[in-house]
Amino acid sequence: MITVTDLKKVYRQPNREIRALDGVTLSVPADSVHGVIGQSGAGKSTLVRAIALLDRPTSGTVEINGVDLTAVRSAPLRKARRRLGLVFQQANLFDSRTIAGNVAYPLELAGLGGAERAAKAQELLGLVGLGDSGAAYPAQLSGGQRQRVGIARALATDPDVLLCDEPTSALDPATTGEILDLIAALKARLGLAVLIITHEMSVVKRICDSVSLLEAGRLVESGPLVEVVGRFGSRLSELLLALPPTPEPDSAAGVTVEVLDAVSAGAVPALATVGRQFGVDLPVLAGTVESLGGVAFHRQRVLVPSALAVDEVLAALRRHGAQAGRTASGAEAAA
């Protein structure tokens, strides 16, 4: 369990202050994955460095199982750090050490003997699927393999928390999937609290149980994945169920509306039911379907022809369990 409370980081420059983190509060229980998503400049790197105490936060606390990391320094901090494993975007392996030597590094710091270190390193490498590569050097591995080593190294001291800084941003999509699946498997097996900082929506959709949106140093939206995606008109819902831009239709042609429908397995989407009811096929301008947590989220941008009364269509959609609203006037959430 990791709990971050009111974390702030202010960079003071000669003529101004940059509030890179402006009161971040979040908590990740054991055996779950929380994603923090943010655009470039939102404060993601600052957040990782503050949580890992690589840079001291200006104020706020970082607690792991109730122990406040910001309250300790020097030797106790170095010891407390072992409760938190850090996975970097570029793996940051030591090129001068073999793969096994890299994984053994934190064990060396912890004072384990040579034989013990070797055995534990071998076990960890087996855990990440690199049991045969211990004698190789980092330069001989692919990007995905290096990230596996990075994960094994982060797990060497049996941490409770795994903090991942853009762990797949340097990888191709197929390797990204493999690494995320590995993190998910390790989380379940070791009961880890995993915090992933990323700018990739695909990462959140694939493994996160809950998610927060970081913007200008603040978490502006937060919640369980299924809940935030189902929050019609929310930024996270629109980011995770992204639709391509479509040209504004001629006002004579009709009005565009957006529909968000959580369709359980085997059920008929509200849009289809309503179309049948009105006796027209409502033209879909853009649409996406994403299966998250066992629920299929349908998000569509639909043209309601001028022959129909928009409000009646919206009311009908809502009656059938969907959330819907006009696009131009913004999203009017509905029950």
Binding site: A52, L54, R78, F94, E108, T157
Partner: peptide, 26 residues
Amino acid sequence: HPGKVDAAHAMGSTRAQTVTKVLVPE
């Protein structure tokens, strides 16, 4: 690469260990 120094710190190295076990060997 400064990321290696970050990694050394995150794993709980002292400054002396960072120099002798990471910086100089790297």
